[in-house]
Amino acid sequence: MSAAHLSPASGVGVDRQRSRRRRSLRLTLEGWAFVGPATVLVLGLSIFPAIWSFFLSLQRWDGFSEPQNIGVGNYAYALKDADLAAAVTHTVLYTALFVPASILLGLLLAVALNRRIRFIGLYRTAIFVPFVASAAATGILTTYLFSPQFGLLNNILRRIGLPQQGWLEDPRQAMVVIAIMSLWGSAAFTTVIFLAALQDIPGELVEAARIDGATARQAFWHVTVPQLAPVAVFATIWQVIQALQLFDLVYTTTRGGPLNATQTVVYYLWNAAFRQTEFGYGSAVAWTLFLVTMLITVGVVLYSRRARIEAF
């Protein structure tokens, strides 16, 4: 613990040393008393089940019969599971749609909000509200918007004489609609991060560039944007992790349909574990996803260090 740091520097007398030791012990105990409950919670509710799920992933267990040890059998099956491969494709598609869009939209909104105009507090709040809304609420709201028969969007299309769309009920459009939905819900996150970063950039830099003859656009691209790079790397990694774990929106809207077109990796493993009661296989898929996410993160961190983008 950091208790040692907290103990004040003192003289060399034996008594004082003893009292210092006692004091440091007290501080240590005090420290543990503060972090203890949280540590127990984290260990009990997060670390311990995670470790247990690893052992589960080496078994074939339906939750009722005796578990069977099958070594890496579940992992081997995952590698040749065509349905899982499809789920991976859907997740990658979603990530490719969602992450760049959320970064660009966040940057755009942040620049738009980073100025002194009237009611700026109101605008910032309006952007942030969807982020606070739960995914369940977002999901339910958007199923109403996108309902092919009774939804607002198809009504508008009908009014202006454009063809009706299937939206969430069309296998080709469903994933795009889900990406739009989550973009609406989480653009605020990247916006706030970019906004904070923008406000950290000293005004003199842009001013100096402008005095040197740069146009507003040049100043933005060559002065402001490079300053934002570390934050952009951080936001990208964060959004990728979020995207790879997409579950809640799918669960509240399409439940993996139509024709499994929106079945993501996490939805697939949830279905395997809880619908088909293959707890071992579900755990194996979860661990594989965890390792892949870890590799991607470490990879990006190493790359950004080498490229001297100091995001971490």
């Binding site: 997060s46 964060w238 774990q245 579950f247 996490v266 574990a273 661990w287 996410t293």
Partner: peptide, 19 residues
């Protein structure tokens, strides 16, 4: 330098919930 607390929303979360 902030580090991403990777384990916070660990990918094994759903698997964790299993158990």
């Amino acid at each position: 330098m902030p580090r991403i607390p990777i384990h916070r929303r660990s990918t094994a979360r759903v698997a964790a919930a299993v158990t």
